[in-house]
Write a protein that binds this DNA or RNA. Structure first.
Lengths: 180, 180
DNA sequence: GCTAGATAGTCTCACGTGCAACTATTTTGG
DNA sequence: CCAAAATAGTTGCACGTGAGACTATCTAGC
């Protein structure tokens, strides 16, 4: 809980954690947006060890790899950008690096010569197969403080928020748009 | 989006050959670290409207204001950095701006002339009093998809993860160190 | 079938931020 | 009491990234 034991905090905290408005102050530690930010940053840096130090990838590159690894068919940079909600220029740069490192390859799409179909190379897939279990293990460690049921709860809650923020349909939407 | 028959061929061909075992993949959309990142980014940008457009603050500045607004006593930049888990140089720059805008003021600490005690000015407190209800309202909108109980659940789950990541004790630790 | 608008991807620019060096001060330990 | 380590805060530097311009291509409408 975002419950600290400093007296000031305790005195002014509302009993109900979900209470929409404390009296005349805002406890940053109970403020969900702040907590999400901090948590995401922390979790990210905990994972960074895996893909950064061990494999030389940064987050955008990992997102490209992960997207291509999950969908075994080739897809466009645009698609990856939409799915991962990452700016297209960021994806573009990651793609350039990954191409150079021969972790992915791209094929011209004769049907639409503006775009390129991206897919993992053998080397890239090997890396993916090696990397993602490590990342899942990390995730597991991070969520080890939760019971199986709590994890489900968490997943469901995140899902609801994502949905209400329109973060969810990206996959289907992108697919729909893409009509692959 | 010009996506047509060639893609279908592509997909099925690859599906046969490249995914003999569907088990060996990672669904980014079910990967909690990724989801947290995306969610935090989205929520942040939803809130940015409030403190950025309406009050000209960026996130670090808002964190300083929020910390000082919550604790009505003066505290050091270091303390804010620890509480908010923000780099001290980032806080330093935010403090410089806020001082210039006369939203906060700082007093030399005679007991330790390395540090300064920071506190909101009248102007700063006015802004705080105006801003934080707006932010709470936003938070409320974002969490409107959850019932009261679900919010409690969420809060509790986040709390557990925070705790296991040692994100929690910052406040007490900082207080202890600071002995304000 | 041509023009206007959309779309994929790249590139330049500006900016925020982490890192690390630096100054000034305090604390520690010999 | 002095030297060395620690700490608060600032600043220069490098880098990653979002915004947006730009090129090339495709689509739609007339």
């Amino acid at each position: 809980m975002a419950r600290t034991s400093s007296d000031i905090a305790l005195k002014t905290r509302q009993a109900d954690e979900a209470s929409p408005r404390p009296k005349s102050r805002l406890d940053l530690f109970k403020f969900v947006p702040f907590r999400l930010n901090r948590l995401a940053a922390e979790v990210s840096s905990a994972l960074a060890v895996e893909y950064q130090e061990r494999h030389g990838l940064d987050i955008p590159a990992w997102r490209v790899i992960a997207t291509l690894g999950f969908r075994n068919d080739a897809c466009s940079a645009q698609y990856i950008a939409q799915c991962t909600r990452t700016h297209k220029s960021t994806i573009s740069r990651a793609v350039t690096t990954l191409l150079h490192d021969e972790l992915i390859e791209r094929v011209e799409n004769e049907a639409d010569r503006r775009e390129f179909r991206l897919q993992l190379t053998k080397k890239g897939r090997t890396l993916y197969e090696e990397l993602f279990p490590q990342l899942l293990r990390r995730e597991d460690e991070i969520l080890a403080c939760l019971s199986a049921q709590e994890r489900k709860q968490l997943s469901a809650l995140l899902g609801k928020i994502e949905q209400s923020l329109d973060l969810i349909q990206t996959s289907e939407e992108a697919d729909a748009k893409q009509a692959y």
